[in-house]
Design a protein around this nucleic acid. Structure first.
Length: 425
RNA sequence: GUGGGCGUAGCUCAGCUGGUAGAGCACCCGGUUGUGGUCCGGGAUGUCGCGGGUUCGAGCCCCGUCGCUCACCCCA
């Protein structure tokens, strides 16, 4: 309130101590992807606007009203990426990543942008972690991709979420269903805006939160009932693959995804502690996307999950680790003439791999100890005249308050033992 | 785009039917000539979001405006 400048409306920002959670979450979510051989792809946060209008679909809300689009100095229409998959496909096609072994397995992380009215868990700049497996259509790959998200959530300590899956089938199944669904909807008394929405994509009505619309849709024909034999078998195989690695799920035949490119297996992770925006991640298979964007006719599957919402979910569940800022040792030089010795010692210990902070300035011992306490350091050490002349110092365990005398020349090895011992405790 | 709630200290908030602004936490110093967390003492901090109006007098009432927030549509 005091400064003149404010962050733009609706952005999520992370600064200490909460930024430690952000870093932690990113690392934990990435680990299962790396364990499955999904390598990093780092892409621009802006692309040609047409990539999204063609890839994501003109009829989607994302494209029709939520994109940050502007003209660059060369008169090109540029858009800040609203989602990750289209950009990944562009890069795969452009750089011929699909010429070798398939599937191409990639993961990404970074900021995304949608010009919506912000609310709890919904931001104009938000962060996603995502994974794509491109080039093979195999139920086990579907299950692997879903499993990567699932393991990531679990490794963060989350429990109050569930996985919902469905299948959108192939294009024939969808066409047959759509005909019946449109017929059904045409018999409903809907307001104009909703009718327009239904014309663009009748499936969207399944996702409406309004009670009267829900009541209307109760007896609507379900896409799942229209799957042909091949799609049915594929969906059954995905389910048994998930069961084989103990991933619980529910089938939600009403599930709708907001992006037009999904086909076949689609899924969503929802969390119960978040307010209105309960989705913490979602994704699915996309059969036509790559060809639409000018590449080969390859199928792919992927997900995007919201890091901001994952953090909110962890906070709601109370599973945020308390020791995310970790410091082994806090060094306190006592007296101006010992600052250089302390500075050298701190530097040497850091090169040994320890996380070390020191006090600066000329605050008194009490103030410096207070700072050591606040820092969360496990051990502290005062370096003054007595220590320099005797060559030994008191290494103090900050949680127990006890200290032991250590020889300065052997500090690194003593500290290593101590840290190891306190890790076990 | 539509609707509700809220803007007071760094943070969380109190402030009665209008009488000139407070608490807790955090921060700094000291009680202890070289050892933190508890305790005790002391200290700094506000254009009460902004602009206008009513009034002898506005944090409080009225109008406008900006911002934040939650929800709808929709989505991570």
């Amino acid at each position: 309130m005091s400064g003149r400048y404010q962050a733009p409306k609706g952005v999520s920002e992370y600064f200490p101590p909460r930024s430690n959670i952000f870093a932690f979450v990113g690392q934990k979510l990435t680990a299962p992807a790396l364990a499955a051989g999904y390598e990093l792809i780092e892409l621009p946060i802006f692309e040609d606007t047409e990539l999204f209008t063609r890839g994501v679909g003109e009829s989607t809300d994302v494209v029709s009203k939520e994109m940050y689009t502007f003209e660059d100095r060369g008169g090109r229409s540029i858009t800040l990426r609203p989602e990750g998959t289209a950009g990944v496909m562009r890069a795969v096609i452009e750089h011929n990543l699909d010429r070798g072994q398939l599937p191409v397995k990639l993961h990404y992380r970074g900021p995304f942008f949608r010009a919506e009215r912000p609310q709890a868990g919904r931001y104009r700049q938000f962060y996603q972690f995502g994974v794509e497996a491109i080039g093979l259509n195999d139920p086990f790959i579907d299950a692997e991709v879903i499993g990567i998200a699932y393991q990531g959530f679990k490794s963060l300590g989350l429990n109050n979420f569930k996985l919902e899956i469905t299948s959108l089938g192939d294009s024939d199944s969808r066409a047959a269903h759509r005909t019946d669904l449109v017929k059904y909807i045409s018999g409903l008394k809907l307001d104009e805006e909703t009718k327009v929405r239904a014309e663009k994509n009748p499936l969207r009505l399944f996702d409406d939160k309004r009670a009267e619309v829900k009541a209307f849709m109760k007896d609507a024909p379900l896409l799942l009932d229209y799957l042909n034999a091949e799609s049915q078998e594929n969906f059954a195989n995905v389910q048994s693959a998930l069961q084989s690695i103990d991933i619980p799920f529910e089938i939600n035949p009403h599930m709708v995804r907001g992006l037009d490119y999904y086909t076949g297996t689609t899924f969503e992770f929802v969390h119960s502690g978040l307010g209105a925006q309960s989705g913490i991640g979602g994704g699915g298979r996309y059969d036509g996307l790559m060809q639409t964007l000018g590449g080969q006719d390859l199928s792919g599957i992927g997900f995007g999950l919201g890091i901001d919402r994952v953090i909110l979910a962890m906070e709601a569940e109370g599973v945020v680790p308390s020791d995310l800022k970790y410091i082994d040792l806090y060094v306190i030089p006592l007296g101006a003439s010992f600052r250089t010795a302390a500075f050298e010692m701190v530097n040497r210990l850091r090169q040994h791999g320890f996380v070390v902070e020191q006090s600066f300035g000329d605050r008194g011992l009490k103030g410096a100890m207070k700072a050591a306490d606040k820092s969360g350091a496990r051990f502290s050490l005062v370096l003054g005249e007595a220590e320099i002349s005797s060559g030994s110092a008191e290494l103090k365990d900050m949680s127990s308050g006890e200290s032991v005398s250590v020889t300065l020349s052997a500090l690194a090895s003593t500290l290593a033992e101590k840290v190891k011992a306190s890790n076990k405790a």
